[in-house]
Simulated assay, not measured.
Amino acid sequence: MTESSPTAAVLIIGDEVLSGRTQDTNLNTIARFLAALGIDLIEARTVGDRKAQIVEALNALRAGHDYVFTTGGIGPTHDDITADAVATAFGVALPEHPEALAILERRYGAEFNAPRRRMARIPAGGTLIANPVTDAPGFQIGNVFVMAGVPKIMTAMLEDVAPRLRTGAVVHARTVRVTGVGEGSVADILSAAAQANRDISYGSYPFGHGSVGEIGTNLVVRGRDAMKVDAAVEALLVELAAAGIEAMQT
């Protein structure tokens, strides 16, 4: 929204997401997490379990944003290659991290086998991200935060990530519900409002298409100055009323 606000990107890693076997919910969780901190989520990509593809995407994203959050691919199996790819992207070695090793040894005891030991490999220079659910840590290196793909674990890891981030001004959002007409009927009004208020974001989200019930659209007004957002909503309601369009703030 503004130049002073940190920006972020999400890289979702896993063949299971691309195949449709697993429905990703992590993006929504991270988006809400970042919004509460005033960090603008600008971009999201999904890639498979292919090292070259992960490296390429990660290097592009970390160069273009203040923060990058990856999910998936840090487990004990052969296709968990995120740590390898991150190490390659940063041009560093991938040794066993002593603290990670100790955490995993305590967790698994006599069942701490070679596959589980793979999870102790952390790119050189990386710091651990705590995992209060299963203990196996994620890690941070540079502006990249590498987390688990399992939603419950990823969400728990965000608690350790939050204090490390530079925050910005929170975005305030208001919704105006338009009923009885489709979004094409309000497009000109919305466009004029957007042109008149460059520091305010306007979005239109229609509902009821193809159904017998009520049709309309939700107009969402966003901005970092709450007073300006409220004023923009009031102005929008006036313009809609003047055009004979039924609308109300929800």
Rank of each mutant, 00 (worst) to 15 (best):
G142F: 06
G72Y: 03
D225C: 09
D225Q: 11
F69R: 02
V144R: 02
E239T: 14
A60M: 11
L236S: 04
L34P: 02
D66C: 06
V238F: 06
R118W: 00
I141N: 04
I245L: 10
R116K: 14
V181R: 03
V181F: 03
A93M: 04
L190H: 06
A63T: 14
V220C: 10
L94T: 07
P115G: 09
L94W: 08
V178R: 03
P98A: 12
V220A: 13
P206L: 11
V144N: 01
D199C: 08
A136P: 01
V55S: 05
Q23H: 13
V238A: 14
T217P: 02
D80A: 10
I74G: 04
A35S: 15
I12T: 12
R50N: 14
N28F: 05
I129V: 15
R106D: 13
T22F: 07
H97R: 05
A52E: 15
I200Q: 03
V68Y: 02
V186P: 00
V221E: 08
P76Y: 02
A231L: 12
H172D: 11
F145K: 00
A120R: 06
E246H: 13
D135A: 10
G109A: 07
T127E: 14
L11C: 05
A231Q: 12
A232G: 13
G72A: 12
E43V: 01
A36L: 10
V171W: 08
A8D: 02
A226F: 09
K51G: 05
L101W: 05
V150P: 01
Q23L: 13
V10P: 01
A9F: 04
A8Y: 00
E43I: 00
E159C: 02
Y108V: 03
A242T: 14
G216C: 06
E159W: 03
V171F: 13
D40F: 08
N113Q: 09
G182H: 11
E214Q: 15
E105N: 12
P6V: 09
V47M: 12
G213K: 14
A93D: 14
G210V: 11
T175P: 05
I74Y: 01
N131C: 00
R117W: 05
D160R: 01
T29P: 00
N28L: 13
